[in-house]
């Protein structure tokens, strides 16, 4: 293909790569937050909280690059949609980062106590959530609508994990009021993971818009 806007398309590719770097940091942050929970690793929790600033900076960087490309290159059609979507994705990824950081804060609150519940369920949920995020970003890069739709569908599984885990916690807490403090924190953690799932769904819906120009 004879590309008459090579340098613009190169910049667009670089923007996409920056967004993927941000996605990769965010994905690691979620994984680390659950590892910190399971291993009661306060150092790791602190690291996640600290690294949230890097994620915030990425959001600003991507927004600025998107604005500059729009101002200087006047993109249209798929190029314009891609830039708009990357700008929106940056916000979704930043929010995911906030959720991972929120998990880390809760880990710090409950790390001193014995877990009141098996962590396997939450661990499975977090693995699914991370996979959902990775797939959502893969669907963006490959412009794979089928994969994007799968992620949207799979969000129901994330919601189910959240609902079941919370039900278990309520049972525990209603039997023993000493478990309420940790139980509440764990409910929040489950809720944060569920919200991360919603953001991955957003990424996929925006990917579908980017590819087709139509909303899901």
């Amino acid at each position: 293909m004879n590309d008459s806007r090579k340098s613009f398309h190169k910049e667009l590719k670089e923007l996409e790569n920056e967004m993927l770097k941000m996605g990769s940091i965010v994905g690691e942050s979620i994984q680390n937050s659950i590892e910190a929970l399971i291993k009661k690793d306060l150092k790791l929790a602190e690291q996640i909280i600290k690294e949230d600033d890097i994620i915030d900076d990425y959001e600003v960087l991507l927004e600025e690059k998107c604005t500059r490309l729009i101002a200087l290159q006047q993109p249209v059609a798929i190029d314009l949609r891609k830039i708009i979507v990357i700008s929106k994705l940056a916000t979704d990824l930043e929010r995911i980062g906030d959720n991972a950081s929120n998990i880390a804060y809760r880990v710090k609150e409950i790390a001193a106590d014995q877990h009141i519940i098996e962590m396997s369920q939450l661990s499975e949920m977090s693995s699914l959530v991370v996979k959902q995020l990775k797939d959502s970003l893969k669907s963006f890069v490959d412009m794979d609508i089928e994969l994007a739709k799968n992620v949207v569908e799979n969000d129901l599984k994330v919601n189910k994990y959240d609902k079941e885990f919370k039900a278990e916690l309520i049972k525990k807490m209603s039997k023993n009021c000493k478990q309420i403090a940790q139980g509440t924190s764990l409910m929040f953690i489950s809720r944060f993971l569920e919200r991360i799932g919603d953001h991955s769904t957003n990424i996929c819906e925006r990917t579908i818009y980017m590819k087709t120009g139509k909303r899901l």
Binding site: M1, D3, S4, R5, H9, P75, A77, I78, R81, G213
Partner: peptide, 19 residues
């Protein structure tokens, strides 16, 4: 035409992918 053209050739032209 400028947001979501239906023909690939239109999109290629307006986005500078040929010409």
């Amino acid at each position: 035409i400028f947001e979501n053209p239906s023909d690939q050739r239109t999109e290629d032209y307006i986005t500078g992918r040929f010409g």
